[in-house]
Design a protein around this nucleic acid. Structure first.
Lengths: 414, 414
DNA sequence: GCCCAAATGTTAGACTGCTTGACAAATTAA
DNA sequence: TTAATTTGTCAAGCAGTCTAACATTTGGGC
């Protein structure tokens, strides 16, 4: 059924089973025993003993006791050894910068967030990132040498290994700058760079509303709109890394002009910016709305609209319902194309809650085919604004853990 | 980068490399040498010798000479042994039934096509399939025992291993009928069942306009519209097998009613049926068009519109251009979401050619983001109406070849 | 024609990771 | 206490791959 046509058999990875076991341990909440691992991976218990011994030897994994009601010898539960090392996750948004320090079991030790302006371009922005990283480390009595990997998210598509973004409307001045290479050579730590929606998906997949799913979409509705996709259990980035650009689906052929140059894109109808614009228009043309009493119209934000709507303001509720319905059309299209099991709605605008979610669900149910519509669950992000940063930590840990797991191979020991 | 989170390590396959080599041989036009295989798979030449010996032993592969201008010992080229066996491909369309007999190198030996009506339901339709299969075999002096596998396509989403379709608007009466199981138990031959657009994609991927691509979409534009997807080099079927339903993307929020119950679906605007409907409207309301002189308006088809357009009829050209533009909006959406390298346009309506293709290309270029739009190539199907049947043969061969390759394992020999 | 460089394919021995089958260990049920 | 059950480990053997050496077959330079 699910066969691979162009096989790249074992990539550059030596012992694929060891790494698979490692991932299985780290993504099983509450840990897992050798016997259960053997069953899950379709290997013998003896083989699993050998693999786990390798992981114990490099102290990646630790054993804990357990008392399960079953008859028979109780299993020894294995889990990632949190104290084995630390990683850092960085979430670079359009208007904020978040940076978090985590242990090997992905528990966040400390987190700092500051306002930020990505349009300043790479040099000043990355300097700011470095300053904040230094602050975080000093605050926690750590040095860069203690960090084994860094995961970072940016709000644009990453097109190559060097970590360049291509013509991102939201990131002027960044075009062609080798973000990943620069950071890696500056800090001498492995850096993995991903699109922020991709990381949001990963975060929700690992610890949130899409836990363990194999077909998952995460829609980040902020000032812009983007999606991160997990298909057949793999992160999907497309031929050139720019998959998931749901924000530029055409919803109204002759709709408002979008930043991307096209007309009637979802982003121009339902993004945070679009919601704020509609709020301004309403505030200027009518006084029968709370929006006209929330300060100068030109400073209204999507957050204001949400607040007014929750307080019963009808025009605000209509703006949100319309945005939800437009989002629903795009998501219905995505459901028809991808047939995912779960769609997670995240990003700032998703904090509006049911006022936005209900029209999305209604529209998707009406506008996607039965087979796909019946199975798809549409939920808000459990990790809320922290989806992306958790995804960045997941990526950093993927690098760090597997690098440590390979240690035994590369260093033959005494 | 492209790591798998929930690994099912070696599935039920014993020797994954042998099967990978087999696929590499069969999809490399002109054959491939042991040395090239070793390079491609990142194995040693010694290992490749052993693997190839296994394949030679069961006569799946044969050796041919070669004279390449290179210095050094000339390679022995390996290719599939066509005489090792036969398979059958079946393409069940809404209005036609095609059935083809092929050898192990996918060369078509004979092919029969008859008019057909899928709305009659499973019992009479499958009886017709059986009759046609018998006819094909008798005509070629073969018996069912000589056929090692059958691949079959149906115009609806397949939701489980039993081969059931779910509420397909185009296939009334088939809902819940276990097509694959029925045929397999009746004929006692492995049958693989797929959606016809999926098979079209496979056909074009193997022998057509998407040869060897890893990110490929095939759009079948017939009376209905569907898509088959190859993502990360894997056939993508979604969580429940109903991925690729591009025909029901909403293009005009308040557009014409679609068979699926929604409004303004692509299919209701640009499918063959929709084109015919628009032709009727034009023919009835105006006499300044060739369409009104092509027989009774209620019998006009998309084919008539294409013919009139080619003869310079402006209203017909407008109908086609509008359909192309609507298709373009949907395909642009798909390009934004999937970022494929190639989009292949197939199905009956695609035979219209550049008149349809040009507006598609223009619209996609305008309505998809730069990163994805710059790399995507949009082409018509090279195999034309035979994409799906070739895909069915590809699937049948996947079953047959790999089954023969496992023969050595299961039958220890004398 | 002769020798060498270059590439392909094969062989032998070693190594790695897995399986099987037996067994020890730790618990519950009777 | 004994039996049943489940987990984890050990030893022997096997399968698939690697390395290193070698045979084979061509082209090119002399």
């Amino acid at each position: 059924m699910n066969h691979f046509f162009w096989p790249t058999p074992f990539q550059n990875v030596k012992n694929i089973n060891k790494h698979a076991v490692l991932d299985l341990i780290r993504f099983t909440p509450g840990g897992i025993s050798r016997a259960a691992l053997a069953l899950r991976m379709d290997l013998s218990r003896a083989a699993m003993t050998a693999i786990v011994n390798d992981l114990l030897e490099v102290e990646l994994v630790r054993e804990t006791e357990s008392r399960n009601g079953q008859s028979g010898r109780p299993p020894i539960i294995l889990e990632i050894n949190p104290a084995r090392g630390n990683v850092v996750g960085i979430d670079m948004g359009a208007t904020h910068l978040t940076i978090a320090l985590a242990d090997f079991s992905a528990r966040v030790i400390d987190e700092i967030e500051i306002p930020f302006d990505i349009t300043q371009g790479p040099i000043p922005c990355l300097a700011q990132v470095e300053a904040l990283l230094t602050e975080l480390l000093e605050k926690n009595d750590m040095r860069l040498e203690h960090i084994l990997a860094i995961g970072m998210g940016v709000p644009g598509p990453i097109v190559n290994q060097a970590g360049m973004v291509i013509s991102p409307p939201i990131m002027p001045g960044w075009d062609g700058y080798p973000i990943r290479l620069e950071m890696e050579s500056k800090w001498n730590i492995p850096v993995s760079l991903n699109n922020d929606a991709e990381l949001g998906m990963l975060g929700e997949w690992a610890y949130g509303a899409g836990r363990g799913e194999e077909h998952l979409a995460y829609i980040k509705v902020g000032s812009g709109i983007g999606a991160g996709l997990l298909l057949n259990g793999q992160v999907y980035q497309g031929a050139t890394g720019s998959a998931g650009e749901i924000g530029h689906l055409t919803i109204e052929e002759n709709g408002p002009l979008c930043d991307c140059g096209s007309n009637g894109c979802l982003e121009a109808l339902a993004g945070g910016k679009a919601i704020a614009r509609q709020a301004r228009e309403v505030a200027l043309s009518s006084t029968r709305t709370l929006l006209s009493s929330m300060g100068p119209p030109e400073e209204l934000t999507a957050r204001d609209v949400a607040a007014a709507a929750r307080r019963g303001d009808l025009p605000s509720q209509q703006i949100i319902a319309r945005a939800g319905s437009h989002l629903g059309i795009a998501i219905a299209g995505m459901v028809n194309l991808f047939n995912p099991r779960v769609v997670v709605i995240g990003g700032g605008v998703s904090q509006i809650g049911d006022l936005l979610l209900q029209p999305i669900r209604d529209t998707v149910r009406r506008r996607s085919l039965a087979g796909a519509a019946q199975v798809v669950k549409i939920n808000t992000a459990i990790l809320r604004r922290r989806s992306s940063i958790m995804g960045a930590i997941v990526q950093a840990l993927s690098t760090a853990l597997h690098q440590v797991a390979d240690k035994k191979e590369t260093q033959p020991g005494p």
